[in-house]
Write a protein that binds this DNA or RNA. Structure first.
Lengths: 205, 205
DNA sequence: AAATTGATAGTTTTGTTAAAAAAGTCAGGT
DNA sequence: ACCTGACTTTTTTAACAAAACTATCAATTT
């Protein structure tokens, strides 16, 4: 029985992998279930045997990505020598995550508003995990005596994450609003975020 | 000749005022030129005598709002006792500005993406003025010796404004993305921004 | 029984067209 | 120079059919 489930799990993994590639290269709406099935030389109906619908398939891929991303963070947290290092690692890891999977998030850019709630559950889950880790890092620094005691670490981390999220490519001319930044701007944004970290950390010390 | 132009200017003002009321109550797309003309008991054609088109009319109102807003800021800047006070005034004034004219910006929410470039010119102009004022405040504090010298005040102010802009209503559950925040959330956002100011200012000291 | 598929049903997107509404123009009047 | 009614052009809306795609299921294979 466990062997059977192993087989099933392997096939599910294969489907997730193929779907990921399609979504990454063509985005959500320009990927059809037929194409995914074709890539795997299986019938479309079989996809529906493993996953309830297209949206759930996308979410499953996304959950996997999110889980990998969070694992990266969790593995390193708890081993930092100061807060700046922790913030830096968070921002760098996040940057890498976005750069590597940029096209996968086409879905976000297209729908922009009114995305399915499941998406927001995942986003919310990532955010909560990040908050927990970063708040923990602050707490840890406080206990080590490197930081003066803080009333509400979580509140601070929330502001920190929002602030990071708000960093856009500037220059007033090209200051068009766009929830999801263009790929060419990611590096400039990243650099600005590093500056924000410096100011922020110094303000907390 | 100047009397004639005075008359013209008065009429232009009346048109701007009537348009402002319409845009504020019904938003851009649900306001028609006929209605504005009706409010003023004039023919639609006359509106086109004073303004080239609807979009330019909207921009003219917006420029007026922007100018009033900036005047508010400029009048007070230069008279602050510390940086925190300056930042606070900027954020409070901005908050008030958004709350008072909330519905006027329907235009932004509806079109979201691909707004006419003229809009971005105005937004960019406001932003540049804000940057100038805030960077000046930083410079002034440096000269007073209250702040240690800073490499690039403008860069810092840009990060500050972006960070403020990024503050959204949190709670992970209701963490849906929305460029333009809902009216009910404005106060919560404002409070978070006050916290950001505290951290930021302390980090610069 | 679990895994798989071809055929098919149901839904969303896309394209077409016509009518309605609104933007924008202009010749002519004060 | 200021103003308008009548007119033209453009944009929005609604309705509808065709196409593309999602999703289902009875039947078949392993």
């Amino acid at each position: 029985m466990s062997a059977v489930n192993d087989q099933q799990d392997i096939k599910r993994e294969k489907i997730l992998e193929a779907s990921y590639q399609r979504f990454l290269h063509y985005g959500y709406s320009k990927t059809t279930m037929n194409e995914i099935a074709g890539d795997l030389s299986m019938s479309k109906a079989l996809l529906y045997y493993y996953f309830p619908d297209k949206s759930e398939l996308y979410m499953a891929v996304m959950r996997k990505l999110a889980s990998d991303y969070l694992k990266q963070l969790e593995d390193k947290f708890g081993h930092f020598t100061d807060l700046r290092e922790a913030f830096l690692f968070q921002v760098n890891t996040h940057h890498e995550f976005i750069v590597n999977n940029y096209n996968f998030f086409d879905f976000f850019r297209l729908n922009e508003q009114n995305l399915p709630d499941t998406i927001w559950e995942i986003v919310g889950h990532i955010r909560e995990a990040e908050i927990k880790l970063l708040a923990g890092a602050i707490q840890s620094e406080v206990e080590k005596g490197n930081l003066k005691p803080v009333a509400n670490p979580i509140e601070i981390v929330e502001v920190f994450l929002d602030a990071l999220h708000g960093i856009k490519v500037g220059g007033s001319l090209s200051y068009k609003k766009l929830n999801f930044p263009h790929k060419e701007h990611l590096n400039e944004i990243h650099n600005k975020r590093l500056l924000l970290i410096d100011i922020f950390v110094k303000g907390l010390k």
